[in-house]
């Protein structure tokens, strides 16, 4: 298979505390990968190593390598800003900027200088909002504040904002954990839809969600990768006893 991201022997530390142990896994292009595991297992930390978001924590340090398209993103001289443009991220809680709906989506396009003119900018914003299945709901109030949207709409706005800069990979950190079931369903449909164009890594504490949306699932526990297999196999016939115990709800 064609790997978009290939992680080898990754260790992660907060100061002197080790949070991830010797993680190796390959993420194929244009698939949805789900990370599951009990809280504190390191799945979110691992997700954030993929766009070097952990750099913002002063005490964090990393050993091992994360290859993206064959280049180690932890190599010295890596342009983190350019990396993050290629690897978009959607967070657990929606975090729109205190700007209008339009400006939220336009922000990434503007700073990265992606658009050629105003009409192009508007077109790109519209496309991103359509791809995030939000366009119909907001097209008449693009200039009103993003804070006026519902929680589910805000989260889809954040997805649109991420899509607008045309990333190759989208990381989603429990994107539906703060949403009601209907909004959650919309996000899930969207994830499946987006798979056509993007490689998606999604962290979730909801195993049904992982089963519904992902092609492959990685199960983490206590900072270690226990098992990584196609989702189908993972939920029917896992290799590891630990995985089976977790999936059948015997702990966590």
């Amino acid at each position: 298979m064609e790997s978009k991201i290939s992680v080898k022997n990754l260790d992660f530390f907060y100061g002197s505390n080790q949070a991830l142990y010797d993680i190796s896994l390959d993420i194929p292009e244009r698939e949805v990968i789900a990370f599951i595991g009990p809280s504190g297992c390191g799945k979110s930390t691992f997700l954030r190593t993929l766009n070097r978001m952990n750099d913002t924590i002063a005490s964090a340090s990393v050993k091992g390598s994360v290859m993206m398209d064959g280049k180690n993103i932890y190599a010295s001289g890596t342009d983190v800003v350019a990396l993050r443009r290629r690897v978009g991220m959607v967070f657990q809680k929606s975090n729109p900027f205190p700007k209008s709906i339009f400006e939220n989506v336009a922000y990434g396009i503007r700073i990265n200088g992606i658009h050629s003119n105003k009409a192009d900018l508007e077109e790109r914003v519209e496309r991103a909002l359509k791809n995030a299945a939000l366009w119909e709901e907001v097209k008449d109030r693009l200039n009103s504040s993003a804070f006026g949207l519902s929680g589910g709409q805000q989260q889809r706005l954040c997805i649109a904002r991420a899509l607008a800069v045309q990333p190759e990979v989208i990381l989603m950190d429990e994107p539906a954990s703060a949403l009601d079931p209907i909004a959650t369903q919309k996000i899930e449909e969207l994830v499946v839809e987006l798979k056509r164009d993007y490689t998606i890594v999604i962290v979730t504490h909801n195993m049904q969600q992982a089963a519904r949306v992902s092609d492959r699932t990685a199960f983490f526990m206590l900072g270690k990768l226990v098992e990584f297999n196609p989702t189908q196999k993972m939920f029917t016939n896992p290799d590891e006893k630990l995985t089976e115990d977790y999936i059948t709800g015997r702990f966590g």
């Binding site: 766009n51 978001m53 913002t56 990434g108 700073i111 991420a162 800069v165």
Partner: peptide, 8 residues
């Protein structure tokens, strides 16, 4: 984080 993740 939102801004950084967009490549700001």
């Amino acid at each position: 984080e939102a801004a950084l993740a967009l490549g700001a």
